[in-house]
Design a protein around this nucleic acid. Structure first.
Ligand code: MN
Ligand code: MN
Ligand code: MN
Ligand code: MN
Lengths: 224, 224
DNA sequence: ACTAATTTTTAGATTTGTCTAAATTTTAAT
DNA sequence: ATTAAAATTTAGACAAATCTAAAAATTAGT
């Protein structure tokens, strides 16, 4: 009965942000957190919280925060699905680099056409992950949570495979390119420096020392 | 010097409409004509005319109408280029039919990324025409005007090739599909009915009687 | 438990894009 | 040349989305 048909671009951006901040379970996300993430003001968030609550997209408890309703989660997953499929498209079909895709996908994710995104999905042969290693939600709302961990938490001498990035900023991604670290690469932790928590890691053809900040933005999966 | 960098979606739609109504030369387009085309009110058009004039995109003469400046024409061609390239993409890469593409292209044409549209262009191998036979403006602003005429104006027993449609509504396009008329088809005018100006035409494998309204929405090029 | 600091909300203003209704200008018709 | 009709503009209003500044509520520190 709720007419979820009219969701504006701005509303979609709020929905996505709330999802990414963890508002998909019943955890309430603070107004300030949303405002900071979106580079907007808390008062704007409050306004939108009311609007989204009226539409049945979020649950809003005054002074406490918001979380997505079931409808809101569905909507969020649909937007994220579009965002990530477009990112794959840009890389696979148009030779964009992984640091270039996010900005354009931010626009493309708002295109309204179910047929379009389904066909893109098919053209790409139903990819499971986007160029940053993030899982692509299914058309039906399924959402794989992969078991991955930060490289900074991997024990010494363990061999792991790089599967994702936490920070997806162009700066970080280009740093990885420059240092020849890519998704799918095998990484072994050779040393952990006690002083600054930097790591000495071994890649296929080179060894490299990386700061803790780098290591705590790289997701890996340990080989058993 | 004028910062043409911020052009809103709404402004883009006005620019495109003015272009399509002939406002690319110095012909002034009436407020009412724009309003009707865009299904909006004349007063809204006046407001926008002022805004676009301020930005140097249109020349606006009070009570007379608007036409595009050189900057405006360039902007219009860029939007039309994007619209038509996306239409080709949808048909060629995603198996959309020619009656489905316009609606989605109306959204996609507003995506801001020069790299994106250039790569789409390359992926499609630099098409010259969109699925409706309309020419695709070049990146540099070139715009081929093809010599085509309406089927309704072709003399008897002349053989012509179908090269475009004037009406691009799904209704008309589906009518053409149903009657097996497609771009590239050869058409010969066998008879012209004096009473209602309907035509008897000969296609590759069938003859067909079409009304004047149909014939005056089909562009053809006569074989010499 | 009581301040003090922080967070959140409200109130009022602004911008963009639209509308209606009234006023103005242009055009067409006698 | 007047008058009537049509087109266009203005004035004022509204909804969406944002902001600033002030008020209210919550949280934290003692
Ligand atoms: Mn992204
Ligand atoms: Mn991504
Ligand atoms: Mn079109
Ligand atoms: Mn077209």
């Amino acid at each position: 009965m709720p007419k979820l048909f009219l969701v504006t671009r701005s509303e979609e951006n709020y929905i996505k942000t709330i999802f990414h901040l963890g508002g998909s379970s019943s955890t309430l996300i603070a107004t300030n957190a949303i405002a900071e993430q979106m580079e907007t003001k808390p008062s704007s968030v409050t306004d939108m919280a009311k609007k989204l609550a009226d539409k049945g997209i979020v649950y809003y408890k005054k002074y406490q925060g918001v979380c997505l309703t079931d409808i809101g989660v569905k909507k969020a997953l649909s937007i994220i699905r579009k965002h990530r499929l477009w990112e794959v498209f840009l890389v696979e079909k148009l030779d964009f680099t992984w640091d270039e895709v996010h900005e354009v996908a931010e626009q493309l994710e708002h295109i309204k056409s179910e047929k379009l995104i389904d066909r893109i999905d098919a053209l790409l042969e139903f990819p499971k992950y986007d160029p940053h290693g993030d899982p692509i939600p299914g058309k039906d709302g399924t959402f794989l949570k992969q078991d991955k961990q930060l490289l900074s938490e991997v024990p010494l001498n363990k061999v792991a495979v790089c599967v994702g990035v936490k920070d997806t900023s162009p700066t970080f991604l280009k740093f990885l390119d420059k240092n020849k670290i890519a998704l799918g690469d095998t990484i072994e932790v050779l040393e952990k420096e006690e002083f600054d928590h930097s790591l000495l890691i071994k890649l296929a053809n080179h060894e490299l020392s990386i700061s803790h900040q780098i290591a705590s933005n790289l997701y890996v999966k340990i080989n058993y």
